[in-house]
Structure formats: structure tokens, C-alpha cells
Design a protein around this nucleic acid. Structure first.
Lengths: 337, 337
DNA sequence: ATGAAAGCGCTAACAG
DNA sequence: CTGTTAGCGCTTTCAT
């Protein structure tokens, strides 16, 4: 790669003049300007972004941290982030933390050293000090989906109203005549799953039903564990007539178990998911589910982050945190009767 | 973030001494070494990676270019890349080119300016000059899956033997008694799809059958187009008794259409996919498919790339290109009889 | 063993 | 309008 010096000498000007025409901030004589442009063309010169970063103290790069890119919701969120970042001239570094707190932490440290401009974090679990310190140290941060109640107002967040969404979903099942509604709960460490569970229990109570422990499946080791849990649950006498899964991947596993048992969906049991990943409409039967605007969540996250970055550059401090709550929609397909 | 200067003055040494203890290349008096370490601890100093990059002319970052991260195979490949990169101290920037050549090109240019150490390219289509120039300019490159025949020996590649894999798959269908085998072809611009098609046609011929145009579905606009194509094809008199889809996502769409028509899988028609994405085992019926080691392909790609990077640093030139052909496996589940 | 100094490529303040 | 110069934070000779 040629550098600014070569261009300067080829055009017969100083490097600052080259810098000026490249950045277009300052006025340059039209004549010399043309000469420089020509030299740039000839040498195929591109400013070295590393040097620019060092000088400007900014990298035009953001980091997206996901717990596991294979989990179907994250590619969609990531795409939203990537598109928005790209449109605004940012690159995105992907960190797959693999649900491993140590890796999560190491990743943050590494990115800090690279002067990453900001973090979209989808991998937060519990309340690690290093994430909170991040903002205190001046790094723009936005949390997507996974965050605790106390993060709201402290850090920027993007999510849906998990309580309301799950409440409406369960109410729908009740209204369509289901009497024994089972729930597949995600990991309790995550606020979003506690909320979905709370809504499930409350919706039942509000309609004169009691949540029964024998109808609750709880994730222990990975989503696949729902396969055997479903089989066990459905083998009980008086099994559920509907299963509300707290995520689409769980719903897929549950449907798989149901198929293997010869239980018909939705004739014998309705299945309702949560997410609306692209594949939800493609499985058999097409999955009814609570649709989260995944791509948009990513886009909004990136937008919010970039706003923080710009604001910080102008005002030397971060703006007050905002809480973005996006709208969900109950999409009824054929897995519910 | 504190810098090397502050650490130096706190420890009462020069910045070069700090640099020495940080990098551990050169010997430092044990006494001063301790003082420096203590100063580092106190200030929580981390070397600025941007400055290091500028100085060393290397960023310890690779770029993975994917056409669309929502396509189920890419998250798995990406994870392989990310894991391997991480283990070797590299970060990865993700570029989703959205199947858009202009964006693809712009992405490459941008990364070059950032002094990215190397490229894992999964998004190559046709033969754009900028990708070939990349290696000529000294950038390590590895192509995954999507490349042309003439790229072999010119650039590093990772893929499976698409011809052999597809041939074996079709032969399996023939041997299990299928007489009218349909094929869902991917975009013809891609060598890998041309290979799979060629194998399909040859396998048929080798077993006394002729490929019939009415049994070939060709992708025109996106994978969803197979929905209506499947419906049309199956409505013909004397419809196929097996469909070989050139990728799992296509197989999912085809199965969806079949279900909607009330056609039973595999009783009425067998469906065989290609890829073995995670979801293949989860749909109903579980999809028989040619299993590509997607994660491993990503891992091998990253490995190969890092090898190139290291080699280049030592020898001031790139090693000769290698062609990594990974093994596939025919996984028979319940979508074939 | 340690420090001084040059310089990676660029930007921006300053001087002219 | 243009050139000179001082860094950004770090590594790495070259002296000492």
C-alpha cells in the first residue's frame, strides 16, 4: 500500500496538502487539488486507517458480542447491527463468547485495548462488574435482550416487553380454549425468562387457573434437554393441551419430540413459540409464535450506539441512557388450534 | 486508558523499559521489572493495540466475508473461524455482503485500508479482479465453498468434493429404489452448484436414467421460489419419487410445499438435502442429507489463513496455495425411504 | 541493563 | 493557500 508521502512527492506537494484534499475539510487550490487527485489515482492511494485511528483516537469499529452465533436469533440481530454499522461507516468485530463468562470478559478487555468505539452486548449474564465499568470508563454500550431490571436507566437497552408479550400469548391460548397449558422455561438467570415466566403464571391466575409444577419444563443443559422433558411430560396422565415455549429453538425441539411420540400438533397439543425466527414459518406445522423484530433490534442497537459515539465526540460525555422497547406481534400459524 | 508514558513515570523508568517488560522479549533487571509490573497493576495499563498495529504493520485481525449471515450454513462456518481466530489471538471482523458485488468490493477496500491481516471469503461470486489482486498485493486469502475451478492452486481454498458428494447422494437414492429423481439446483454462477448438478446428471446416466428437464428446479429469485416450483412440479402427471435438494434451506422450503400439498415424506416422495445444518435433524421428518463439516470448514479456513500470515511474516512472501478438501458423510434420517 | 531517539502514517495547529 | 512541525502510543535500534 502506498502512503501519503509517496502521493505527496508524486504530486509535488507536502503531505498536509494531500491530507487536506483527502479529507476535504480545508480549502485547496483547484489546480493543486487536481494534481493531488491524479497522484492518488495513479498510486491507488488509500489512507491507512490504523494511522488515522491512532491520530483521531477512534476506530470506527464496533463490537457485537453474542453468546452463540448458532442460536438462530443472533444471526438476525447481527445482520441488523452490521447493516446499520456499514451504512454509517463502521465495521463490526464479532465476538462469540460461547456462553463463557471468562471469554466474555477477555473479549471486552481485548476490545478496549483496540479502542473499539462501542459495544453491542447480547451476551450479558448476571451482573459482571466489567460491563458496568465499561460505561464508567467512557465506552458507549448498548445491551440487547439480555439485561437485568437495574440496567434500565443505567445503560442503553433494546428489547421487547417480555412480560406483556408472554402474557398476551398465554391469554391467547386460554381464549382459544386450552385448559392445561405447559411452559418451557429458559435459564432463570436471565431476566427476560423470569419475566416470561411471571407473565405465564399471572395470565393463568387471572383466568382462574393455577400454574402446576408438572407442566413446567426448565432448561438445565442446553435446548436439547427439552426433548426428553417433553416426552416425560406428555407421558403423564392428563397431559397438557398446549405448550408455550419461551423461544423458537425450544419449540422446534419440543415439536420434534412430539412428532416422535406420534402426538399430533395442533390436534392433540398446540405449540406456541417466542421469537419468530425465519425458520418458524418453514417447519411442519408452521409455528405460531410471538414475533420479535430481531433485525430491527439489531438495527436500533447499532443506531443507539452510534448516537452515543457521536454525542460523546461532541460533548465529551455520554448521553443519558435510553430504553428502547420494540413492538411484538402474535403470529398465529398452524401449530395452535 | 493509561498509556506507556504514565506507567514509565510512575515506575521511574523510561518507556522503553516498560515496553520491554510488557513484551518480555528482552532481559530486564528483576528489580526494575517488579517496579514496572507494580506500576502496570496500579494503573491497570493495557498497551494500545492501535499503536502496536501501526508500529508492527499488523493488526491481528481477520475479516470474514459472508454473503448472508442468515443463511444457516454461515453461522456455523463463522463460529469455526471465530473460535480458531480467538485461540490464536486474532479478532474477526464480520462483513455481510448481502450478495451484493458492490458491497463486497467496498468491503474489501475498506479492510485493506485497515491493514486487516487476512481474509476468509465465503462470498465470492464470478471472478472479480479485486479478489485476485488481493493476494498479488500480499494479503493472505482463503476461499471457502464458493470459488471457481481456476482458483484452485491460485488461492487457498476450503471445501468438500461437491461432485463426489452429490454423486454418492444420488446413487444412494437410485439404490434405494427411486426411479424419478428430481433435482433442486442452486445458482448456476456458483461452481459448487454446477458440480453438484453435473454429478446428479452423471449418476443418473451411469444407472441407465436420463436427466429430465421437467424434474429440474432452478433457483431464480431466492430460496423461497422453490415453494411454487415444487408445487408445480409435483402437480405433473407421473411426478418424482425423490427430490435431491442442493442445500438444506432449499430442502426445508420443498418439504414445506410438500406438506402443504398433503404429499407424504418419504412415503410419496423422498427428500434429500445437502449441508446438514443443525436444524436438519429437527424438522419433521428429520432430513436425510449430505453432511458438510461446516464448523470444521471455518476452523480449517482460519487455520490456513493464520498459517499464511505467520509464513508471510517470516519469509516475506506467501506460501504456495493449498486446497483443503474435507470429508462429507451421507446422513440418512427419515425423509428418505 | 537502560535510556534516547527515530519513526510507523496520519492530522491539525501554526506560521508564513 | 500551503508547508513545517508536533504529536497519537508504541517498538526497536543504537548508544551508553
Amino acid at each position: 500500500m502506498t502512503n501519503i508521502k509517496e502521493v505527496a512527492s508524486l504530486a509535488g506537494v507536502s503531505i498536509s496538502t494531500v491530507s487536506r484534499v483527502v479529507n476535504g475539510k480545508s480549502v485547496v487550490n483547484e489546480e493543486t487539488r487536481k494534481r493531488v487527485l491524479e497522484a492518488i489515482r495513479q498510486t491507488n492511494y488509500r489512507p491507512n486507517a490504523v494511522a488515522q485511528n491512532l491520530k483521531r483516537g477512534r476506530s470506527n469499529t464496533l463490537c457485537i458480542m453474542v453468546p452463540s452465533i448458532e442460536n438462530l436469533i443472533f444471526p438476525e440481530i447481527t445482520k441488523g447491527v452490521e447493516d446499520t454499522a456499514w451504512k454509517n461507516g463502521f465495521s463490526v468485530v464479532l465476538c462469540n463468547t460461547d456462553e463463557d463468562p471468562a471469554r466474555d470478559r477477555a473479549c471486552v478487555e481485548k476490545m478496549k485495548a483496540r479502542w473499539i468505539d462501542g459495544f453491542v452486548i447480547c451476551s450479558k449474564m448476571g451482573d459482571p462488574e466489567y460491563i458496568h465499568r465499561l460505561r464508567d470508563e467512557g465506552f458507549p454500550v448498548v445491551l440487547v435482550n439480555r439485561f437485568e431490571e437495574q440496567d434500565i436507566g443505567t445503560l442503553d437497552t433494546v428489547s421487547v416487553d417480555n412480560y406483556q408479550a408472554a402474557y398476551d400469548a398465554v391469554r391467547y391460548l386460554i381464549r382459544t380454549g386450552h385448559k392445561r397449558i405447559s411452559y418451557a422455561q429458559g435459564r432463570e438467570q436471565l431476566f427476560l425468562y423470569r419475566e416470561r415466566y411471571r407473565a405465564y403464571a399471572q395470565a393463568l391466575k387471572d383466568h382462574g387457573m393455577e400454574p402446576e409444577e408438572r407442566f413446567i419444563m426448565r432448561e438445565n443443559c442446553g435446548v436439547d434437554s427439552f426433548y426428553s422433558m417433553t416426552k416425560e411430560m406428555m407421558a403423564q396422565p392428563d397431559p397438557p393441551d398446549a405448550i408455550f415455549a419461551s423461544s423458537d429453538p425450544k419449540a422446534f425441539v419440543i415439536m420434534h419430540a412430539l412428532h416422535d411420540m406420534g402426538i399430533r400438533i395442533p390436534e392433540d397439543v398446540s405449540v406456541l413459540g417466542f421469537d419468530n425466527v425465519t425458520l418458524a414459518s418453514m417447519v411442519e406445522p408452521p409455528l405460531s409464535t410471538v414475533s420479535q423484530p430481531l433485525y430491527e433490534m439489531g438495527a436500533v442497537a447499532a443506531q443507539t450506539l452510534i448516537h452515543q459515539i457521536d454525542y460523546k465526540e461532541k460533548n465529551e460525555r455520554l448521553p443519558v441512557p435510553v430504553c428502547n422497547t420494540l413492538r411484538v406481534e402474535l403470529v398465529i400459524r398452524r401449530s395452535t388450534r
